[in-house]
């Protein structure tokens, strides 16, 4: 049992970490938290389904196209919900409302296009494997493996490419970055694309295990946010650790105490961390700048 809880917890935690990393990317470049994040997760899934069902595209193409559209929607979000707010007043915090609002718009668009019913989503692989005394589906391990690869790629991108260093530079000091010839506008757009892709891929990974519907993203916003804040906003390691902590704690509480409490775990961690250590586990005080 414990082993199974850990496997499930790590897998789900990885998904939360991806969403949490998405929170970080826009926090770095724009100093905002994008509360529409979960809706991007939903958008990628439903768009894939739409392209497959109604345009009759094969799944791989439908998924790539859906991710591209989701990324484009990320750019739209910056243009309509974030830039006007920050342009009007860089210290304004209206983005809390505008990103939440944009999320609601996306959700309602999805309801218009897809209705409130659920849709199936194909698995990557069938079959079951035995891991010590736990039996799990191969799909679950595939999700975990892809998550690990993504996190590693994200780390390489941010820490080992000039573009990644430029993102960090913009995050640290926008003017100083501009003074090096870094186009901070471009970096901001890149961060929106990254945000949308991280959320979108997270959605595509869980879609076969849960059901796809317009409301699937909302809870993921809460959990990804919990992961990001728990780990410390802006810290990639923090988002990953935060995601894993939330994911594993959920499974343990759901399994040993009460499944009904599962979804509340993220919020409970948020409360505790805010009282005990507002900058999060791995955060620097820099988070207080916002």
């Amino acid at each position: 049992m414990l082993l199974l809880f850990l496997i499930l917890g790590i897998t789900w935690g990885g998904i939360y970490a991806l969403v949490g990393l998405g929170f970080n990317t826009t926090f770095w470049t724009l100093r905002i938290l994008n509360f529409a994040q979960g809706e991007y997760l939903m958008a990628a899934v439903l768009l894939s389904i739409g392209f497959n069902r109604w345009v009759n595209l094969p799944w791989p193409i439908a998924i790539v196209l859906a991710l591209a559209v989701t990324a484009a929607l990320g750019l739209v979000l910056e243009r309509v919900a974030i830039r006007p707010v920050l342009q009007h007043d860089p210290r304004s915090h209206s983005w809390v409302v505008t990103t939440l609002g944009a999320g609601i718009v996306l959700q309602n668009l999805a309801v218009l296009l897809f209705g409130t019913s659920e849709y199936p989503f194909p698995k990557l692989m069938e079959g079951v494997v035995q891991l010590l005394d736990a039996r799990v589906e191969k799909q679950l391990l595939a999700v975990f493996a892809i998550t690990v690869v993504l996190v590693v790629l994200f780390d390489i991108f941010v820490n080992r490419t000039l573009m990644g260093k430029a993102i960090k530079a913009v995050a640290f000091d926008r003017m100083a970055a501009e003074a090096q010839g870094i186009n901070s506008r471009g970096i901001v757009m890149l961060s929106m694309i990254l945000m949308a892709l991280l959320a979108g891929i997270a959605g595509l990974l869980i879609a076969p295990m849960v059901s796809a519907h317009p409301y699937m993203g909302t809870l993921m916003t809460v959990k990804g946010f919990s992961a990001a804040v728990l780990g410390g906003l802006g810290s990639p390691v923090g988002a990953i650790v935060g995601g894993l902590v939330v994911g594993i704690a959920e499974q343990l509480v759901g399994g040993y105490i009460n499944p009904g409490l599962k979804d509340a775990i993220g919020l409970i961690f948020l409360f505790v961390i805010l009282i005990a250590r507002p900058q999060g586990l791995f955060g620097k005080k820099v988070a207080e700048r916002v």
């Binding site: 938290l33 909302t218 809460v222 946010f225 804040v229 906003l233 509340a264 919020l267």
Partner: peptide, 16 residues
């Protein structure tokens, strides 16, 4: 920062 987190908490609890 704390304020937004608090606001978000309230929102997400309402959601739950």
């Amino acid at each position: 920062m704390k304020r937004f987190v608090a606001l978000f908490l309230v929102l997400s609890m309402a959601l739950l």
